[in-house]
């Protein structure tokens, strides 16, 4: 697979870091990180992360690819942008975490696929791509049932009072899902975006990874 990021073989192998600098959204600026800790100190959910952004960036530099792509840090970022506005090197931390999450999915890391947030993101994306809108009922249902039938039913029932309340206050409706005006155009836009993305991810990794190696993507 040409799109896979390189898997470092020795300690402090720079190949993974270089690949991230060149291929991940905002990675070029990550190269300027000076390890000051402002991002991790600013993060409202930092305590719920395996590693804060600063440490994650150091791990990338140390070539700890597996630990990085398996970490929940990529999924627990809530896009508050506190770190981005405060980072003295203008590192777009949020973009980097989100793009690393897509790298983890693309390379087939089970931790990435199974995390709560990636399940939710998937359900959200399904609705947004299909209707141009998110439908609360469908997104929640898809997300709940991604854990299996029994679990989905249990979670759904547990949240029924909230759903009823939302219907009552007109925050959720019961008919067909609302759509944006021209879903045909939306599909075209998304197809084009997918094409551009596929193009930008083919080849890049090959250049940055003379040694090859794709271990970790079957997990």
């Amino acid at each position: 697979m040409t799109h896979a990021s390189p898997t470092p073989t020795k300690k402090y192998d720079l190949n993974f870091a270089r690949w991230v600098y060149e291929n991940v959204d905002g990675g070029d600026r990550m190269a300027l990180c000076m390890q000051c800790g402002t991002c991790s100190g600013s993060c409202p959910v930092g305590q719920q992360m395996d590693y804060g952004p600063r440490k994650l960036f150091m791990m990338i530099r140390a070539g700890l690819k597996e630990e990085v792509l398996k970490s929940n840090t990529l999924w627990n970022c809530v896009s508050c942008y506190n770190c981005v506005v405060r980072c003295p090197r203008k590192v777009p931390v949020t973009y980097i975490l989100h793009d690393l999450a897509t790298v983890a999915v693309r390379e087939g890391y089970a931790e990435a696929k199974e995390s709560d947030n990636s399940r939710f993101a998937k359900a959200f994306w399904w609705s947004a791509a299909k209707y141009g809108r998110t439908d609360e009922r469908l997104v929640t249902a898809l997300y709940y049932f991604s854990f299996g039938m029994g679990e989905g039913y249990k979670r759904g029932m547990a949240n029924m009072p909230i759903a009823m309340g939302m219907v009552k206050t007109k925050r959720m409706h019961l008919g067909m899902p609302h759509k944006c005006k021209n879903t045909g155009e939306l599909k075209k836009i998304l197809a084009k975006a997918a094409e551009i993305e596929a193009r930008s991810h083919a080849g890049g990794a090959g250049n940055a990874n003379p040694a090859g190696g794709t271990a970790g993507h079957d997990k």
Binding site: Q35, C36, G37, T38, S40, G41, G46, Q47, Y51, G52, R54, K55
Partner: peptide, 9 residues
């Protein structure tokens, strides 16, 4: 903030 040597918040 974050102590970057101990990672303590």
């Amino acid at each position: 903030g974050e102590n970057t040597l101990t990672r303590d918040i």
